[in-house]
Design a protein around this nucleic acid. Sequence first.
DNA 1: GGCACCGGGCTCTGCCATAGGT
DNA 2: ACCTATGGCAGAGCCCGGTGCC
Length: 372
Amino acid sequence: MTSAYKTLVQILTVKSIARRPLWRFYSTASNDDDPKTNPNPENTSLLENLDLMGVDVRMARKRQPGVFRRLFTNEEGVAEFLEGKGASRRTVASIISRYPRAITRSKDHLEQRWQLWRNIFQTDLEIVAILDRSPESFFRSSDNENLLKNITFLSSLGLGNQDIHRLLAAAPRAFSNSLELNRQMVDLLEDVCQELGGTDPQGFAKAIILRNLYILIRSTKRVRSNVDFLRSSMNLSDADLLDLLQGSGAKILDLSTEYLKKNMSSLRGKLLVMGCSEEDVRKMIVAYPMVLYIGAATLGTKLDCLLKGGITAKQILEKPKVLDYSTENVTARLKELEGIGYDFQSKGIGILNLSQKRFEAKKDRLLTVQNK
DNA sequence: GGCACCGGGCTCTGCCATAGGT
DNA sequence: ACCTATGGCAGAGCCCGGTGCC
């Protein structure tokens, strides 16, 4: 195993000591409250402390009221810790406002957890940015050992350090899942692979995770029903479905199944009205699975705008990725191109599918040629 | 240069329900 | 009775540029 791994194990071997809270700064409940008449008084000095720190107490209380009745909390320690890692006071206040239970974590617990994250991230500030974005992902679980197990488990699937980095940065929640839950998802993916006649279940699971960093924070129920739905409705061979799922189709497993069904049916309806066949629908989904991500309303306006701009259904079927860009973007481009007399029939629609920079460059070249 | 193909970046958090522990 | 930890849900795409071939 790597030395990084050994470090992690060392951190966790001092667990028994570390679990003993070493709160240096803490709040205590006021003695004025008589426990007999008021068995669970709020900790008033805590409330004052938090208020002084800029925490939105009303929001925090609404979220996790239990925290405010604790006799001992560690808000000062947590704030000091986070500020030591480069978080601003504003960020700290925002974190506690959104996930008050953070103030129940001990300094040692935080040090450990931070170290585990730091073995994946290069800098403290990267981590701070994620905490600012999603405090719950970091603080929800108090089980550092489970976090380490998740990292080890994912590595064992063949995910490299860079992969783990992407995963933790994008979907930090996945690392607060129980190992068991993550294992269930991986088992499910491996099962699906085998059901479809695949020969490398682990490679399949790995491919899907890398293509869809959010898969581990979905329920297995959802993923299972999406796979089943695609299998029963797409009329694909097992091998083709396998390729679709571990390729660009991995992302559509995210959708709620109801939404997936709705989108599939609105796409089909729309394409059939445009004169396309069932086979065309199937081909489009295989070529560009993300089309199923587009809601009925957006899809409708996007297709209409293309048709109105002089693009044919056949052209859209040939280059479904034109649907990748926003309707606003496409509309603006269509207008610009109309202005310079661009002929889609002879020149194709690829131009709609360029990044803004490439589009502008292309347009400039067209104008230069025209002006000669 | 023109084009096709491909993969990656962003961000997807914040809320609710509930089992289980004390 | 209360709290914590954890599972699960709703929400509903867009954009960029590297690379390799011609």
